[in-house]
Simulated scan of single mutants.
Amino acid sequence: MQPFVYNALPMRVIFGSGTLSQVGPEIQRLGCGKALVLTTPAQAKEGEMLRADLGSLAVGLYSNATMHTPTDITEEALELAQRLGADCVVALGGGSTIGLGKAIALRTDLPQIVIPTSYAGSEATTVIGQTENGQKTTQKTPKVLPEAIIYDVDLTLTLPAQMTITSGINAIAHAVEALYSAEANPITDMLAEQGIARVANALKILSKDPHNIEARSDALFGAWACGSCLGAVGMALHHKLCHTLGGTFNLPHAETHTVVLPHTIAYNAPFSTVAMTKAARSLSAGSAAQGVYDLAKNLGAPYSLKQLGMKEADLERAADVAMKSPYPNPAPLDRERLLSLLRDAYEGKRPA
């Protein structure tokens, strides 16, 4: 018998099609009536439509959520929330918007309702990453866990092809790290395997048929499963590297996860054979590292840091930053091995 400790997160999940109509009732269920809607600039139109639909339940819209959650953006949104007397936030969007909602909740304890439009999965975790002065830091606290998550499959039907793939592999990264986490347990293992399989199979269909409603549903459910299992356990090397690359070098979040994941899997594989067997099985691949790499490359996603604009001269600095603070990881952390990992990711080499 495998001994384990499992901490279930208190979350309310509404999943289906047309569930956007539940936002108003959920605001009222929380005892609130002055919601501030949050979006990125690209989704401002959708945010304004939601604000209008909510009528008197919404007091305004903040539409400048930004990748990697810069603290100056958070302060700007927080000032608006206080000026309008907001008693809750409604985040409509992907990881950038969800991160902003979490950052506001961290500072104010305002309740959050999250409506994901991508497969980021961060809505299901107690993790928040924030960037200040070019340095991205993360913390884990129940204060940032949303009170309600509303998954509306209809909102993902227009997700662009490239974003669909990279966002989906970002979700897979959550589940892979959960499988080899120091806090792994049978419950999260089961969720992780199901999440990886659902997302991977859905991505193959969506690359050819982006409006396939069943595949969109599977991808969204898989993203929730992947995020949920990571929310219940701890992060390791993969997320540390991606936060370093994203916050320090301003690389795009989902694309960075997509490029780096095969290489962090390969780094940890000799020290987490059972976890990697489960991941490979869920990917229908002989090797978890090669399975993720082939999935990304075959579906047209970026597969090298060079493609994302990373400079080769910055690899040494990235390795130094990643080594700064200790964190649990199956394989021992060694600077030269990390540098080799980063070089492989920079060149886009297929893991051996």
Rank of each mutant, 00 (worst) to 15 (best):
F4R: 12
S17C: 14
L20S: 14
G24L: 14
I27N: 03
I27G: 10
Q28W: 02
R29P: 06
T40M: 00
T40S: 11
Q43R: 04
R51D: 01
G55L: 05
L61S: 01
N64E: 14
T69W: 00
P70E: 08
I73R: 15
I73D: 01
I73Y: 07
L80V: 13
A86K: 02
C88M: 11
I98G: 02
G99F: 03
L100Y: 06
L100V: 10
R107G: 06
T108Y: 09
P116K: 10
Q130I: 13
T131C: 11
E132K: 11
T138K: 03
Q139L: 14
E147V: 01
I150W: 09
Y151K: 06
V153A: 04
D154F: 04
L155N: 00
A161D: 11
Q162L: 15
T166E: 12
T166A: 08
T166S: 05
A171E: 05
I172V: 15
H174L: 07
A175N: 08
V176S: 07
Y180I: 04
S181L: 08
M190P: 00
A192R: 08
Q194M: 11
I196M: 08
A197R: 13
R198Y: 12
A202L: 12
L203A: 07
I205E: 10
K208Q: 15
S217K: 15
A223G: 03
A223L: 03
G227Q: 06
C229S: 09
L230S: 00
G234F: 06
M235V: 12
F249K: 06
N250Y: 06
A254P: 03
E255D: 13
E255V: 01
H263T: 02
I265F: 00
T277N: 15
A279T: 06
A279S: 13
Q290H: 07
Q290E: 10
N298P: 04
N298A: 13
G300I: 08
G300P: 06
A301D: 06
Q307V: 08
R317K: 15
P328S: 04
L333K: 12
L333F: 02
D334Q: 13
E336G: 02
S340V: 09
R343H: 15
Y346P: 01
Y346G: 05
G348T: 01
K349Q: 12
R350M: 03
